[in-house]
């Protein structure tokens, strides 16, 4: 991939550990706001020079060598405090990238591991998770539609929550068409605090009804398979 090439380049130049583009060697190591804005304009059109839209986004992802669905893109958006999925405004771009001290795609590439590390810190993860709700939501609606919600949950909890696939199945068969913010936030709390055997789940707790129903559904499903397997053993 392009990342490998860049790393080769930087080795050949034998400079410091930070990477640079060989074409502009002079003072490329230091951050330049001007260069940052100029880079932004590479992805915008003259009709709307201050908004980076879906097409620009696709190109940007290609340049930094990341799939648009990669969770690191969410972290980057979170760093920029981008309001709407699929778009960066000039203001969001400069604020976020100034903080990261990035004005080239290589610099961003080198920050990817750093960005990913935010996901491992529980309190930062929580704020990224909560940010994701407003970021991905259709701004005309108060709640998030189910398709988007399931995609975002897959992205954020798919690997780390042992009950994720069951929860996803539950949503699929349920009558819910949207997820509201309270439900969204409580899904994370639930995934963090409730054991996969559900032993520490309290019916009288304040969980949203959706999660009560999930527990009921899961218990019923497990009883079914439990019966099936025990009778299977018997025969």
């Amino acid at each position: 991939g392009p990342g490998d090439d860049d790393r080769h380049c930087s080795k050949r130049r034998v400079t410091s550990s930070s990477t640079r583009r060989h074409s502009k060697a002079e003072d490329i190591s230091s951050f330049s706001q001007k260069r940052c804005i100029a880079w932004f304009r590479e992805y915008t059109t003259p009709d709307d020079p201050d908004t980076l839209g879906p097409e620009g986004m696709e190109k940007f992802c290609e340049d930094i060598g990341v799939e648009p669905e990669n969770v690191v893109m969410l972290v980057l958006a979170w760093k920029m405090n981008a309001r709407q999925m699929g778009f960066f405004t000039l203001q969001e771009w400069t604020k976020g990238l100034t903080e990261l001290q990035c004005d080239t795609h290589t610099k961003v590439q080198n920050k990817l591991d750093y960005l990913k590390s935010f996901l491992h810190e529980p309190s930062t993860f929580k704020s990224i998770y909560r940010y994701a709700y407003d970021f991905a939501r259709d701004k005309d609606q108060r709640s998030m539609d189910m398709e988007t919600a399931r995609a975002m949950l897959q992205l954020l909890l798919g690997r780390q929550w042992s009950l994720y696939s069951q929860f996803n199945n539950f949503l699929e068969q349920s009558k819910y068409k949207v997820i509201n913010k309270d439900q969204w936030c409580n899904i994370l709390e639930f995934s963090r605090s409730i054991q996969s055997d559900l032993m520490n789940y309290d019916v009288d707790g304040a969980w949203p009804v959706m999660l009560d129903e999930f527990v009921e559904w899961l218990k019923a499903a497990r009883e079914q398979t439990g019966k099936g397997s025990s009778s299977g053993k018997g025969s």
């Binding site: 108060r142 709640s143 509201n180 913010k181 309270d182 439900q183 304040a206 949203p208 009804v209 009560d212």
Partner: peptide
């Protein structure tokens, strides 16, 4: 609970 949730919403 549903009423509480809708008031939160």
């Amino acid at each position: 609970k549903k009423c509480i949730e809708s008031l939160i919403d």
